[in-house]
């Protein structure tokens, strides 16, 4: 706990006296409704904005090409950004509690790198003329699955399994996967190398509605399960000794939390590629607004992360239109300086 403790203090220093909280339920309801509203507004408004302006009259009348552009391209893209942002930000907040490290991100366990390696293997070894896209998804999911298998194997050993061991294992997995990705990238031909680079930049693309439904079927229930962990995550952030003394089976919660986070991040990364920063900065920024209680922070992070990625994606496809910049660039360039400003301004 001592390791991450200073960061918790840093991230939540609001003065010696915290505001009174006579009704936590009412505050939680307000945070839930406001963050849900922010997510809904972002999905409703952002698709209407873009480099090539829509004719709203035609959209209203359901006429081509504006209506199909909105419904078949921009809306599914916004919905994908919402789901991906919710998954990355929710799992980021959860990992920060489980690892008791405010710098933890969804990629801390090596899930993102393993998914990326899976995708790169598929791109490198499957002929690009065929329909390789679903193969890339499946292979990326297999990469995330390998990390789940690794965590499950570690959990069989009482002595080796701890949040700290998982964090170190994640660092090792990240290193190994990055090395293998570099190796495949250097051995691939120029076309494949370009495809690999493009995938590794991460991005939100228009996907079919059935794909969105499939993603939602995974992300929504897992996020609901994570939300139900909120009170226990509060206590785990005190340290395992205190939490265990209050009746929390830390080993079981850590294992289940890691598997849930891996499913969220693996599924998202398979479709969007790696998107940096969302899982780190969104929970941090929101912690300063709603406080450290995970009963408020988790819903705010899930919906707030979704809204943030929808806005970032809109900027990434609009600011240099018709050229699109990778959404990961937008999240880092928007969130990074803001994050530094917050740290320096305390």
């Amino acid at each position: 706990m001592e390791k991450g403790g200073c960061f918790w203090v840093m991230a939540t220093e609001l003065g010696a006296t915290a505001p009174a909280s006579p009704d936590l339920r009412a505050r939680a309801r307000t945070v839930f409704v406001l963050s849900l509203l922010a997510a809904a507004v972002s999905v409703a408004v952002c698709p209407l904005v873009g480099g090539s302006g829509l004719d709203y009259g035609r959209v209203w009348a359901g006429q081509a090409p504006d209506w199909p552009i909105l419904i078949n391209l921009r809306l599914p893209r916004a919905l994908l950004a919402l789901l991906a942002g919710a998954a990355l930000s929710g799992s980021g907040a959860m990992f920060q509690a489980l690892l008791r490290d405010a710098l933890a991100t969804p990629s801390s366990l090596g899930v993102t790198a393993a998914s990326a390696l899976g995708a790169v293997v598929a791109i490198a070894f499957f002929p690009s003329e065929t329909s390789w896209f679903p193969v890339v998804w499946i292979s990326a999911l297999a990469g995330a699955g390998a990390v789940i298998a690794l965590v499950a194997a570690l959990s069989r050993s009482h002595k080796r399994f701890s949040a700290f061991t998982l964090l170190l294992t994640g660092i090792a997995v990240n290193g190994i996967c990055s090395a293998l990705i570099l190796l495949l990238h250097s051995l691939a031909g120029i076309t494949k190398a370009f495809q690999i680079t493009h995938w590794l930049m991460g991005g939100i693309a228009a996907v079919e509605y059935p794909v969105l439904a499939l993603l939602a079927l995974v992300i929504v229930p897992v996020n609901i399960w994570v939300l139900r962990l909120a009170r226990v995550l509060n206590v785990i952030s005190y340290g395992e000794a205190w939490a265990a003394g209050r009746g929390v089976d830390c080993r079981s919660v850590t294992l289940r939390g890691f598997i849930a986070g891996t499913v969220l991040v693996g599924t998202t990364t398979a479709v969007t590629g790696p998107i940096a920063f969302v899982g780190l900065i969104v929970p941090h920024l929101l912690r300063r607004i709603v406080g450290p209680d995970y009963r408020l922070l988790l819903p705010a992070s899930i919906f707030g992360g979704g809204a943030f990625l929808v806005v970032c994606d809109t900027i990434s496809r609009s600011v240099l239109a018709p050229v699109e910049i990778p959404v990961g660039v937008a999240t880092a360039l928007l969130g990074g300086p803001f994050f530094v400003w917050i740290l320096w301004s305390r």
């Binding site: 706990m1 918790w8 339920r25 009170r231 206590v235 952030s237 009746g247 450290p292 209680d293």
Partner: peptide, 22 residues
Amino acid sequence: GIPFTVEEVVLTGRIPYGRGLY
């Protein structure tokens, strides 16, 4: 490094009595 109030820390003693959110 506990960012919670005294009341919130004391309430952690009630975790064994129920895992509801509140």
